[in-house]
Amino acid sequence: MADQPTGNRSAIIAAALIFLGMLIGGYFLPDAVNYLAQYSVWLAVAVGIAFVLAVFLVFWLRGRYQKRHGR
């Protein structure tokens, strides 16, 4: 791993952080949605949709960053 360029290492770290964030968010999402559904079903649905859209937003932003920096 010592002979890999720095770009590969940063891509691996970014992928690991994105995956870890999705894993933690996905783990707590059902509990959060169930808790919020006690107050408002629409709020619970909005949080679920926001989580799914956030996943795509992160990958879209990552792609823009890579495109802008020529990677």
Rank of each mutant, 00 (worst) to 15 (best):
V33S: 06
G48T: 06
S10W: 08
R68W: 04
D31I: 05
R64I: 05
A16H: 08
S10K: 07
R62T: 11
F19K: 09
V52E: 00
A16M: 14
A44S: 13
K67Y: 06
V33R: 03
F56S: 10
V52F: 09
Y65K: 13
V41R: 15
I18G: 05
L61F: 04
W42D: 11
Q66N: 14
A50K: 07
R71A: 14
A14W: 05
G70M: 07
V58S: 02
I12C: 03
T6G: 05
A54E: 02
I12A: 15
G70C: 03
S10D: 02
V45H: 10
P30H: 09
H69Y: 10
R9W: 10
A14R: 03
T6I: 14
L23W: 02
A37P: 06
L17K: 09
I49V: 14
F59P: 01
V41M: 09
R68M: 07
F51S: 08
G21V: 14
A50D: 03
L53H: 13
V55Y: 00
A46P: 07
W60F: 12
F51E: 03
F56Q: 08
L61Y: 00
F19C: 12
A50L: 13
R68G: 05
L36I: 08
V41D: 09
G25S: 06
P30V: 05
G25R: 01
Y65N: 11
F59D: 08
R62I: 08
W60L: 08
Y65E: 13
L36H: 01
G7I: 01
Q38L: 07
A32V: 11
L57T: 09
A14K: 02
F56E: 05
G63Y: 02
Y39E: 01
A16C: 11
P5V: 03
L61D: 07
V47L: 00
V47M: 04
R62F: 12
